[in-house]
């Protein structure tokens, strides 16, 4: 409880979200995000990224750490080709890594990310989408733990350096988590980030978030936490109205992303997933993750002030 108090901030101290209900209403009416957000956050119109508390020191503003649309540039495309093969996403074994020409060599930064959320919210589907793999057609609970590695090159704003992020997503079925007591500790051990998923079509998965946050990440105050709402495309059936999201954001001060659960684009043969298009669709999530993780590392290394220094002040204020 005391740990939770440390990073729970009173609603009054938080700044208003820049893209609040107004932006969403615009989206629902016109099926596109307001132009300002498109430019700033959504180069690819699929995902809405909404970052709270960026005025405060602990969370980096979107685009402040990683050059946002760098993967669209000529230089970025060169790096991206190392994770593609014939326009498909390359699958890397544990003994492999992206190979770059020597003149453009880049450092690799590896992170472990635990994907948590109620059963059926789409954890496995999200990870498959990020990895450019086929999303399973029939839903079934993930049997145990499965991990997926996603390489993602990105350019840092501060140093103009290119980093290859190596995200290792840990995904496990909720039933297995409850049934076997070795699974949760294995997933939590040395994890760098938690992704909390809820589904816009499943109210209970949203209501469960606070419990998830304290149960899963309660004893890891200094790790990155992000919340992702899945099935945002089914807004007609949404069970989670914008005002609840706003209240949640104000209470929890966490970056929040929205993901559509739409089928990925295919190559000309109509069967294989288009690797480049798939990457473009998820670039925001990968950039967002990389940004928070890199920032977290910088804070841990003492290079920039972190939440520890700021949090007491905020609480007093």
């Amino acid at each position: 409880m005391s740990q939770r108090k440390k990073w729970q901030i009173t609603p009054a101290s938080l700044p208003r979200s820049q893209m609040g209900s107004q932006g969403i209403r615009h989206y629902e009416q016109h099926k596109v995000f307001p132009p300002i957000y498109q430019v700033r956050y959504f180069s690819l119109q699929l995902l809405g990224v909404d970052c709270l508390g960026r005025a405060m020191a602990q969370l980096p503003a979107p685009g402040s750490v990683i050059v946002p649309d760098w993967h669209e540039s000529a230089e970025g495309k060169e790096y991206l080709s190392s994770i593609l093969r014939k326009n498909r996403r390359r699958v890397f074994g544990l003994l492999e890594r992206p190979v770059l020409p020597p003149q453009v060599a880049a450092d690799t930064a590896g992170y472990k990310i635990f994907v948590s959320g109620k059963s059926g919210v789409g954890k496995t589907a999200l990870v498959a989408k990020l990895a450019g793999l086929e999303v399973p057609v029939i839903h079934h609970e993930t049997v145990g733990i499965q991990t997926t590695i996603v390489y993602w090159p990105a350019k840092l704003q501060a140093s103009d350096r290119v980093i290859i992020f190596r995200f290792e997503f840990w995904d496990c079925g909720e039933a297995a988590l409850k049934k076997f007591d070795h699974i949760l500790p294995a997933c939590k051990e040395k994890t760098d980030a938690f992704l909390f998923l809820f589904s816009f079509t499943d109210r209970s998965s949203f209501d469960d978030l606070p419990a998830q946050l304290s149960r899963v990440a309660g004893d890891a105050p200094n790790t990155v936490k992000m919340v992702i709402g899945s099935k945002f495309d089914q807004y007609m059936h949404t069970d989670v109205p914008e005002r609840d999201l706003t209240a949640f954001r104000q209470a929890w001060e966490l970056p929040l992303l929205r993901v559509k659960s739409v089928p990925g684009r295919r190559l000309a043969d109509g069967r294989t997933l288009d690797g480049r298009a798939g990457l473009a669709d998820v670039a925001h999530i990968l950039n967002g993750l990389g940004e928070h993780l890199w920032h977290q590392d910088q804070v841990a290394a003492g290079l920039i002030p972190g939440p520890q220094e700021n949090a007491p002040e905020e609480e007093q204020g």
Partner: peptide, 10 residues
């Protein structure tokens, strides 16, 4: 099984 880097299945 579909490609996964690692699995821990009961």
């Amino acid at each position: 099984l579909p490609a996964q880097a690692a699995r821990d299945y009961p």
